[in-house]
Simulated assay, not measured.
Amino acid sequence: MYTLKKSLGQHFLKDENMCRKIVEALPVIQGQQVLEVGPGAGAITKYLLQLPGIDFKAVELDTEKVQYLEKTYPEIQGKLINQSFLDMPPPFEGPFSVIGNFPYNISTQIMFRVLEWKDQVPQVVGMFQKEVAQRIAASHGNKDYGILSVLMQAWYRVEYLFEVHEQCFMPPPKVKSSVIRCTRLEQQYDIANERKFFNLVKTAFNQRRKQLRNPLKPLFDKEYLQDSLFTKRAEELTVADFVALSHKMI
């Protein structure tokens, strides 16, 4: 068998209906490349391996789980990458979808990695701690709306799909879980300079309770800072507002 490693945030799904539901949330077409992040003991892996006509790979840091998967699912031979998702290069040439019951302790970093690869990743289906899922999906004006909300929604349409009960896991986690789907926007925002845009969003939310004029002072001309927009707080701005603001930065 295998052991659960708390240090890797391992809580394995045991509810078969939920496993199928997560896999069904990923629209697949013939020839599609799919990467599973953190297959663990193979709860959703076994259903992904049954999908016809896809090019499948999985990345798993835990060597013990890699050995378990290769022994339990012989058809996965040659498809497993024994590495951290955060350290690996893109696993495919061309576009690939990402799916997984993401390790909760690195789930936010996983999404920042997806953003680095956004030109290659048209779709993500992931299970997160509920609060993280809510944060990614939150709209402006919502207390959960923050850096990750704006950055993900600048390139993806985010759908909050469903929640997963603690008893669906072994061992049951002490937190609630939710599944979201991110689909790359067909009509992209006009982001002229990604580095400036990232800096703007992070700087604005670093002092989220203050009017934007305070944290953003170093990024804009003094005259432009008189605009009424700067009397708002970061969570009041839409993604489109942030994009428009990024064009006015020094």
Rank of each mutant, 00 (worst) to 15 (best):
83 Q>M: 07
136 I>S: 07
105 N>V: 06
88 M>Y: 08
118 K>A: 06
140 H>D: 01
98 V>Q: 04
99 I>W: 06
123 Q>P: 00
113 R>T: 13
147 I>Q: 05
103 P>E: 02
124 V>T: 14
145 Y>N: 02
113 R>Q: 14
135 R>Y: 04
87 D>F: 08
125 V>Q: 08
89 P>G: 03
134 Q>W: 01
78 G>F: 09
84 S>K: 10
139 S>K: 14
95 P>S: 13
101 N>V: 11
147 I>C: 05
145 Y>F: 00
138 A>N: 04
83 Q>E: 14
146 G>I: 00
132 V>H: 06
100 G>M: 02
99 I>C: 09
123 Q>T: 15
89 P>V: 06
99 I>M: 07
136 I>P: 08
113 R>I: 01
103 P>Y: 02
105 N>L: 07
137 A>L: 04
82 N>R: 11
119 D>M: 01
100 G>N: 04
101 N>G: 12
93 E>G: 13
99 I>Y: 07
117 W>L: 15
94 G>Q: 10
140 H>Q: 12
134 Q>F: 01
101 N>L: 11
115 L>R: 09
104 Y>G: 11
86 L>D: 05
127 M>F: 08
142 N>T: 00
141 G>V: 01
147 I>W: 01
139 S>T: 04
142 N>E: 12
82 N>H: 12
91 P>L: 08
80 L>S: 10
88 M>P: 05
105 N>I: 08
142 N>R: 00
83 Q>R: 14
80 L>T: 07
92 F>G: 06
115 L>C: 07
92 F>C: 04
115 L>Y: 06
122 P>S: 11
90 P>Y: 07
93 E>Q: 15
104 Y>V: 05
99 I>R: 10
134 Q>R: 11
